[in-house]
Design a binder for these strands. Sequence first.
DNA 1: TATTGTTATACTCTATAACTATA
DNA 2: TATAGTTATAGAGTATAACAATA
Lengths: 157, 157
Amino acid sequence: MVEASKTQSKSTAEEGGLDASLRSILGYTVKRTSNILQADAAGVLDRFGLRITTFSALVVICDHPDVTQSQIAAALNMERSNTVLIIDALEQAGLIGRHRVPTDRRSYALRATLEGMKIRDAAVRALAEREEVMLHDLSQEERATLMALLVRIRAQP
Amino acid sequence: MVEASKTQSKSTAEEGGLDASLRSILGYTVKRTSNILQADAAGVLDRFGLRITTFSALVVICDHPDVTQSQIAAALNMERSNTVLIIDALEQAGLIGRHRVPTDRRSYALRATLEGMKIRDAAVRALAEREEVMLHDLSQEERATLMALLVRIRAQP
DNA sequence: TATTGTTATACTCTATAACTATA
DNA sequence: TATAGTTATAGAGTATAACAATA
């Protein structure tokens, strides 16, 4: 990769060179890339009044009508308690509704509204267009390879 | 993390399937992988009394003696103001020292102590060993490919 | 004027414990 | 007793504005 072979010492080092040894740690490099993509996606979603957390929950609800908050928490790997404000925000924005379940009055069946579906579709499309820009240097095959390699990394005991 | 129970589910039998359409978004998948690696690394670093932020700063200081806080902020892509508590923690742990610079009395020259160097070496080694476990399913070539693809993703205007 | 370190502040995400109402 | 949703709270990470000392 780029080694910025500059023989200069630190005071005039270019902006990004001081973390060279950290970049050889996969976790660090994945985090950096993740931050870039997250910041970019946040900017896109902001135009729809969504944050990454609310967008993610909205997609799950659209895809799985009558899903419960606990199931969303499990799917998105977050705590149940933290779904409350997220679902509140979606409900107050009129994008989803909480519906009572006759067979189990403890839980809500969450369903997207027509507006929620519309916003979701537009946001997904905008994200896809934007990701096309972010990934323009990578071929379709490279993108598939990247995705395939990423999902092979799992939590280990 | 463990979902022991079973057999019952609403729309799908699998536990983690509700976010299927999100997983096709690269940013989402990168973030998930990043979270897994970050949580794992945090556990390793905790044994050395370090967090990811303090570890990262410590490495930069060890690699670049007399670096300033502003340079660390730029290298790690964080705000100058947020380096203060991080450097404080490293200094109070005796891992680095703030030294005055005669030529510019506004800034500090940061240098690792012998103990700081020792901790850094041990932490880097422990992280590498642990990453070996996390990546045991990936060949050396696949790891190199993954890293190479990740660094080709950059912020776009 | 501009920059370095600093303080104060705030917002988001995340995590835990405890409560309620149901089951 | 066990679970779903909720509340309260706390810790990190991150971001901005403003200030004093120094350049």
